[in-house]
Nucleic acid binder design. Structure first.
Lengths: 226, 226
DNA sequence: CTAAAATGATAGTAATACTATTAAAGATAG
DNA sequence: CTATCTTTAATAGTATTACTATCATTTTAG
């Protein structure tokens, strides 16, 4: 096993970008800095002009990589879900119990990406926060159907599909696996946001273990009931 | 009982608007037309200029009522949740079984507002769609904490609080009532959206009875398990 | 060393998100 | 019924956003 070096790369749908940001230095800097800026300004106040200024480059250079900030957001969330999928597969192989695998899967979603897992020097905490507070804007738009046809949401769908399969192992007759899992994934994000900003809408305080515990219990309760 | 006439009015936090849209004809037209326009253009492409044009009035007149389109969105969702709260109270009084009340409550959320209930001549279907696809943008913003301090999200919180109370009647020891209910309310909206736009993330096809059934079963499963 | 690719510099346009000012209409009170 | 107060309309203007285009310069790869 010596000298085993794995080049791990999240595969992103090519239609999301104009030019692969991983193909150049500037591209990678655009990703890293946009994570920092979107996190600090919020998606609405974030602009390519501000991004370019932070990077000491020009607007037109940024536009060479992404058509607009919405596509960039889709890129970032796709990257995130791609990474989580890897995380998920990695953490659940060799666990024979489907119930245990479901618990682990939900924990992965609740924990998000952690520092030691990340290869690129993105600010992972910031990316986690972006996913919590901005990711639903990636699909809550009038262009969702076109984007869906182009496969922009494939990463998210695959993740939900994979966990749904685990749920179906637990109860093959359960008819709402996708509904259940997408509810849980969205739920985790919303509860984290509520814990930080609208605490009367939640009982949790942002503790990811408790959060994962709640949703695991809920999933198992309904999977066993039906 | 003859001549019983009730003036039903949803109470809206005064800080949301600059001038009460219910206080004038133009104000009411702004509400009605903005519902139609936001539904057809989406929030991003919706502007006060376009709204004014549709109404045959001017931008500055619209700005006299609302500071910006975000506040207008908050107004519309507050109105919606205020109405739903009334709906909820009305539909659940005189039901002695807490379980049955929870089922009815979830059905109310899933069904949204229906035509015969509406007093103002808003396009109710359009408002229901706006809530599904735009309402989370009302709080997913950098200004959420200020807005929360001003009480902008009171309607939503009260609704969740009320249904949580029903859940607690069923199981007084349940510690995650708010988490459960806000998950369900958000879940209902997301599942409706997924059914229309990202069907592989759901198993339901937009049938509100099935949707309500799923979430009721889920709620009761976890309320009884714990 | 040269060609090709990538970036930088600069400019420009249409639309957005407002604010301000003044004129005209409508309602209301004495 | 007129004076006045409020509301709306008309017009203008500003800073910013969201791009697109062009061309010069630098970097990189063969």
């Amino acid at each position: 096993m010596k000298n085993l070096r794995v080049q791990l790369q999240v595969q992103i749908n090519e239609k999301i970008y104009l030019k692969d940001p991983y193909s150049s230095d500037l591209g990678k800097k655009i990703l890293a800095e946009s994570i920092r800026l979107i996190d600090s300004l919020g998606l609405e106040a974030f602009t390519f002009r501000k991004l370019a200024k932070e990077l000491g480059t020009t607007e037109s250079s940024v536009y060479r990589y992404f058509e607009n900030k919405h596509k960039l957001l889709i890129y970032l969330t796709s990257w995130y879900y791609g990474w989580l999928e890897y995380q998920l597969v990695f953490s659940t192989t060799n666990i024979s119990s489907a119930e245990e695998r479901l618990r682990v899967a939900i924990e992965v979603i609740a924990k998000g990406i952690s520092y030691r897992e990340s290869i690129d020097n993105f600010e992972i905490d910031a990316l986690n926060r972006i996913v919590v507070s901005e990711s639903s804007k990636a699909y809550l738009t009038k262009e969702v159907d076109d984007g869906n046809k182009e496969g922009f949401y494939g990463g998210y769908k695959r993740l939900v599909g994979r966990i749904s399969d685990i749920a179906l192992e637990i109860n093959p007759k359960f008819e709402n696996a996708h509904t259940l899992i997408s509810t849980i994934v969205e739920g985790i994000h919303h509860q984290k946001y509520f814990a930080d900003h609208l605490p009367s809408l939640t009982d949790l305080e942002g503790d990811t273990t408790l959060l994962a515990g709640f949703y695991s219990d809920m999933a198992l309760a309904i999977l066993h009931k039906t």
